[in-house]
Simulated scan of single mutants.
Amino acid sequence: MTQAIALSLTVPPVLSKTDEIALTDLYVRGTPANTLRAYERDLIYLTAWKGIRLKQGLNWPETESTALSFLLDHARDLRDADLGDPARVTAETLIKAGLRKSLTCPAPSTLDRRIASWRAFHRMRNLNSPFEAPLIRQARTKARRAAARPHTPKSARPITREVLEALLEACGSSLRGVRDRAILAVGWASGGRRRSEIVGFRCEDVSLEDFEKQGLIWLNMVETKTTQQGRTPRLVLKGRAARLLVAWIDAGGIGDGPLFRAISKADRPLARGLSPDAIYQILKRRLQQAGLPENYATPHGLRSGFLTQAALDGAPIQAAMRLSLHRSALQAQRYYDDVEITENPATDLLE
């Protein structure tokens, strides 16, 4: 994950080798893990695209003509392009290399993220980005509008309370089941946590001081996608979700290190934590055991399900956002808007 930082960072010549290493380490430690992974993927893609398209390596600073070519190549559907079109030939090569999925126009969010990474690489080198040029800024705006798509949910369906109950029931009584039940309950009840956030919890992030008397567990998160490091508010678990988490901690003998960890074939906890993909695999397995299709929902369904259930129960959106940690009320409102009008609690006010 440090390759993007290391390769993209150019330090002033007055710095010693020791200071150069220290500065690179500072960038790595000060950048969220998810952002580092995105930088890594984007650097690989950008390098491959330019090498194939222009037969050159990346320049610092990059030229405006290269930036414009990149924008234009990714702002149209290449299925309709001539077979010899350089943009199409490049895209087909990237597809064969596993770096691109299809010839269709990438989603505006994907293009925006890659450009944002490219701009970040320039900032790391203390250089101006060509994407700040007026012509390219205007072209980006037009490309975003031309490729605008209807909003599609990240999960096929939200995991509402009814679905969650079925998943919890399907977990069984083994240690693996106790763990999976805690993962699903914590991921849902703490505000709909992302996969990376769930596997990122460590024992020191969990405070049980109020559990015996009040049934409350406090969760500390270092950072999230929408909050800065050290500025993430504490989250609270109570009721059954709190009890299920304590059951896992007690059954697994979890005293330090990763909160949720791998389990051996002998049904014993291991020292290593889970990867974000493990949450997907756990959910897929429990969906099947609950009698639902494995593609019924993705892990994001925990997040969308929490907000959807909050809307169904008539919880104010501001209260739900205090747990979900959505930065934008408009984004959170989408889940409230997805609730069927006949199920909206406001329709029962007279009753």
Rank of each mutant, 00 (worst) to 15 (best):
L307Q: 02
V89H: 01
A22K: 13
I136R: 01
L292H: 06
I159C: 07
V246F: 02
A156Y: 07
R193Q: 14
I52E: 09
I183W: 04
A87H: 10
R145G: 00
N344F: 01
Y27G: 07
A81Q: 05
S174E: 09
N126L: 10
T224C: 04
A139W: 00
D256T: 13
R261G: 01
A146V: 06
N126K: 11
R88Y: 05
T90C: 15
P258G: 09
P13L: 08
R79I: 03
F211T: 06
L219T: 08
A33N: 11
D348L: 09
R195H: 02
F70A: 09
Y27D: 01
G191N: 09
S264K: 05
R140P: 02
L330A: 15
A147D: 01
G177I: 03
G291D: 07
R179W: 03
L219E: 04
R322A: 12
S304G: 11
R29Q: 12
T66H: 13
A120Q: 14
V163H: 07
D338N: 11
M1P: 02
I159T: 05
K284P: 01
Y335S: 04
T308K: 03
K96C: 03
T347M: 10
I136T: 04
S174F: 08
L127C: 08
R234M: 08
D338V: 04
